[in-house]
Amino acid sequence: MTPSNQPAKVADAPPRNLADRALPAPFLPYARLARLDRPIGWWLLLWPCWWGVALAAVAAEAAPNPWHLLLFFVGAVVMRGAGCTYNDILDRDIDANVERTRSRPIPSGQVRVNAALLFMLGLAFVGLAVVLQFNAFTVVLSCGSLAIVALYPLAKRVTDWPQVVLGFAFSWGALLGWSATFASLAAAPVLLYAGAIAWTVGYDTIYAHQDRRDDAIIGVRSTARLFASRTRLAVGIAYGLTIALFAGAIALAGGGLLSVLGLGAFAAHLAAQLARVSTDDPASCLAAFRSNRVAGWLLFAGLGSDALAAAYG
Rank of each mutant, 00 (worst) to 15 (best):
S103K: 11
R290H: 13
V74A: 05
W42T: 14
A253F: 00
L46H: 09
W47D: 04
A150H: 08
L299N: 13
D211T: 00
P162A: 05
G173N: 01
A25I: 03
P29I: 05
D306R: 09
W67M: 15
F266T: 02
N114E: 15
F170P: 06
F125N: 12
A56G: 14
V294A: 15
V260R: 14
G81I: 00
C49D: 09
P189M: 01
W42H: 13
G304I: 03
H209E: 08
A115F: 02
L176W: 04
L252T: 07
I89T: 01
R21C: 11
L18C: 03
A150D: 06
P153H: 02
D12A: 11
A174V: 06
N87S: 08
V140K: 10
R16A: 14
L18D: 06
V201S: 05
L18N: 02
G219V: 06
A265V: 11
R104S: 06
A194T: 06
I218D: 02
A208D: 10
V58M: 04
L118T: 12
G236M: 05
W67S: 10
V294L: 15
A115K: 10
I237Q: 02
G219I: 09
C49V: 02
R100C: 01
P26Y: 11
L303K: 01
F137Q: 02
A309K: 12
I197E: 10
L70N: 10
G81N: 00
V58C: 04
W178G: 00
D215V: 00
G256Y: 00
Y239D: 15
A96G: 12
R293P: 03
P24E: 10
V131K: 12
L226Y: 13
G256K: 00
R221C: 05
D306E: 11
P153M: 02
Q210F: 03
N5G: 08
M79Y: 03
P39G: 00
L298K: 02
T223C: 13
I243N: 13
E61P: 07
F300M: 08
T231Q: 12
R35T: 01
W47H: 05
I237P: 02
L36C: 07
L185V: 00
F246S: 10
V111K: 09
C143H: 11
Q273G: 07
N65T: 07
Y203C: 00
A8S: 14
D93V: 07
T223L: 14
I237C: 04
P282E: 14
T138Q: 07
A287R: 14
L241Y: 07
D93E: 15
Y152T: 07
A60L: 11
A295T: 05
I197T: 04
P24G: 09
L263E: 03
D281W: 07
A249E: 09
C84D: 13
L261E: 10
V190N: 12
A295Q: 09
D215S: 01
Y86S: 11
Q110K: 10
G127C: 08
L28Q: 12
R102F: 13
F300C: 08
S108Y: 04
L55D: 11
